[in-house]
């Protein structure tokens, strides 16, 4: 199962990167969203997918799934949510101020 999940994470990364390399900001944000999904799945897979009980202690249960990756992912979900919403508002403001959300039109090489 881990191999299948790794491949799925790989597909999420690939599609995310492809979206990231597009021109429009909205597509770029979609790309980051896909990449963060891929990363979360990746962390979960790395923590072994052996079936056991959910990590909520109960009398008599011997084997649980690994709780640490879950805690890490939970933190990561919240952070990526914050970043995504910031990016979205940034996209909105950029489009409002410049009249375009095309990254190729937003570049300025004169001052670099």
């Amino acid at each position: 199962m881990e191999i299948i999940m790794s491949i799925l994470a790989g597909i999420l990364f690939a599609t995310g990167v492809y979206n990231l390399l597009q021109k429009q900001i909205l597509r770029i944000v979609i790309g980051t969203g896909l990449i963060s999904h891929g990363a979360h799945l990746f962390i979960l897979t790395m923590g072994k997918l052996k079936t056991g009980a959910p990590p909520i202690l109960e009398y008599g249960v011997k084997s649980y799934t690994d709780p640490l990756p879950q805690a890490l992912i939970l933190t990561s979900i919240v952070i990526s949510f914050g970043v995504t919403s910031l990016l979205l508002v940034l996209a909105y403001r950029t489009a409002k101020a410049n009249g375009t959300d095309n990254m190729e039109e937003l570049r300025g090489t004169e001052n670099e």
């Binding site: 909205l26 979960l44 799934t65 992912i73 979205l88």
Partner: peptide, 27 residues
């Protein structure tokens, strides 16, 4: 077997999609 994650992911995903749609309207 990750109930907390499932819950958070569900909510966050809903809010994110809503945000996307909101921005999409203005772009």
């Amino acid at each position: 077997r990750a109930p907390d994650l499932a819950l958070t992911q569900l909510i966050v995903e809903t809010v994110t999609v809503a945000l996307f749609l909101l921005c999409f309207y203005h772009l």
